[in-house]
Design a protein around this nucleic acid. Structure first.
Length: 489
RNA sequence: GGCGCUAUCGUCUAGGGGUUAGGACGCCGCCCUCUCACGGCGGUAACCGGGGUUCGAAUCCCCGUAGCGCUACCA
């Protein structure tokens, strides 16, 4: 039997980092086994669902390269793939269970249920349904229904043995029978409860492996009971560890960016993000590498190498990994993918054509952890520097006769042709030599005059991109402004 | 409160009856160098505690502790 797994997000927000990891493991498992990856949208919560989030989740998955074989916009033989369209299926299953006597109406009021719960809690007991309506006769139940009483549907648990299963992520898990009760499977408004809908869907979609976050462990015995009532075969369960914030609690807003789209906007590469997420709670057999392509990960992925404990999301390591991917980008790709962040620079595109912009992006390849950083790094290519770094000015004063050196450089550069790296370097070094000073004594003030900064790309390649006229003009502007005079050494 | 899951460097992890407990991020130092960054080299740093089993336990078992999760007619 071929593998069928599913990812079942609720459209109550953008694709969450934790959900994305669950989706990734499911996808990896399906692709590794040549199985089917199903996407199902659990949109039954009328209050919190927003249709635009479905769109956003789909986009997030596509960004990560997680293609689904069945689901929204993909079709399939096991639909519909929105829970909101599966109501008839749930009703049918519910009716069948009632007919078979495996489910019964419960007329207990929420108030009474709550009171019982409080009582049990006070007695330090595990709260569970007291079975009031369990033994109502069919006739009596029908009478109350006919009288218009509101009722929920509960499943009738027949056995008193522990529920246990071999979890593919956690090993043997057992729940004592006292922990289980006749749970509600249909609310008084006729809608199925979460646990019931999930099981009906997973059965209907022929899911063979349920891979999900460990926060679902305590739902599992309930669901197993529902599988049994339905007479359906059990899938394999694999509960995977959670992704945590820096304080080891469930990742939430206060831990920083929690949705995938935020990482996309921040200039992370999808392939880096994917790689990083995969290594959170899973490791390849050869532990000595960190960088793996999606294909390699697909080949290597097995559930038995998933760890059992939660993992803190370390944004620092993500940045490092992103840099590794940025460094490996072919020049054209780097340029193309940097474009949205270049466009955000005031003054873009200035006088630069595609070739120059491509060069420009290349200057920052090894200097940015995220593509978004280029926005700040490259500012001075599109605007004159407004101020000069103070430490840089102090340092520039160590160059003897600074104005003369800068003027000499400007004059010399004006005659460089072609205005390219090597001739520029020759010119700069000639100026230094001509005045009997070290090259650094020219280079550092020049960078300061050109960019206002003390750090950045190599001076010669920077100049080549900036162009002769702008270089000369900025050097002369520096001389006109005489910013070093305001510095007290 | 009850139940469940978990426990190796600060973080992600490998390993798993006998190892100098390995790798990666971070941090520190050195080298490279026109700055920054990249890169190279080196360093820092861990088996939660207590019992038991065993010739030998970080590894297996039990207890404790701690963290997290779940405890709905939410999903």
């Amino acid at each position: 039997m071929s593998v069928r797994v599913r990812f079942a997000p609720s459209p109550t927000g953008n694709l969450h980092v934790g959900s994305a990891r669950t989706a990734i493991f499911n996808w990896l498992f399906a692709r590794h086994h040549g199985g089917t990856f199903v996407l199902r949208i659990e949109d039954t919560d009328q209050e919190r669902n927003r249709p635009e989030y479905t769109r956003s989740i789909l986009d997030g998955m596509r960004w990560l390269g997680l293609d689904w074989d069945e689901g929204p916009e993909a079709g399939g033989d096991h639909g519909p793939y929105f829970q909101s369209e599966r109501l008839p299926l749930y009703r049918e299953a519910l009716a069948r269970l009632r007919r078979e006597g495996r489910a019964y109406p419960c007329f207990c009021s929420p108030e009474r249920l709550e009171a019982v719960r409080q009582e049990q809690l006070a007695a330090k007991a595990n709260p569970r349904y007291d079975g009031t309506c369990r033994s109502l006769s069919a006739a009596e139940a029908q009478a109350r229904i006919d009288a218009g009483e509101r009722y929920a549907l509960r499943i009738r648990i027949e056995h008193d043995e522990p529920v246990t299963w071999e979890d593919r992520g956690k090993g043997t898990i057992t729940f004592a029978p006292e922990m289980l009760d006749d749970l509600v499977i249909a609310k008084s408004d006729g809608f199925p409860t979460y646990n019931f809908a999930v099981v009906v869907d997973d059965v209907g979609m022929a899911i063979t492996h349920v891979i999900r976050g460990e926060d679902h462990i305590s739902n599992t015995p309930k669901q197993i009971l529902i599988y049994r009532a339905l007479g359906a075969p059990l899938p394999e369960f694999a509960h995977i560890p959670m992704i945590l914030g820096a304080d080891r609690s469930k990742m939430s807003k206060r831990h920083g960016a929690t949705s995938v789209v935020e990482y996309e906007k921040a200039g992370f590469l999808a392939e880096a993000f994917f790689n990083f997420m995969t290594l959170l709670g899973w490791s390849p057999p050869d532990d000595s590498r960190e960088i793996y392509s999606q294909q390699e990960l697909t080949d290597l992925f097995t559930l038995d190498r998933v760890v059992a404990h939660g993992a803190i999301f370390d944004a620092e390591k993500l940045k490092w990994m992103n840099l590794q991917y940025i460094k490996a980008l072919p020049p054209d790709d780097l340029y193309r993918r940097s474009m949205p962040f270049l466009e955000a620079i005031p003054g873009f595109p200035g006088p630069y054509g595609p070739a120059a912009l491509r060069e420009l992006a290349g200057l920052f390849r090894e200097r940015m952890n995220t593509l978004a950083e280029i926005t700040r790094h490259a500012e001075y290519f599109f605007q004159e520097p407004e101020a000069y770094d103070e430490k840089g000015l102090k340092n520039a004063l160590k160059t003897p006769d600074l104005p003369a050196v800068v003027e000499a450089l400007a004059a010399r550069l004006a005659a460089v042709d072609p205005f390219a790296h090597d001739p520029i370097e020759a010119a700069v070094r000639a100026v230094a030599e001509g005045r009997g000073i070290g090259a650094g004594k020219v280079i550092h003030p020049a960078r300061l005059a050109l960019s206002g900064r003390t750090e950045g790309p190599g001076l010669f390649e920077l100049m080549a991109v900036l162009g002769r006229d702008r270089c000369v003009a900025r050097l002369r502007a520096f001389l006109d402004r005489r910013p070093w005079e305001s510095i007290q050494s």
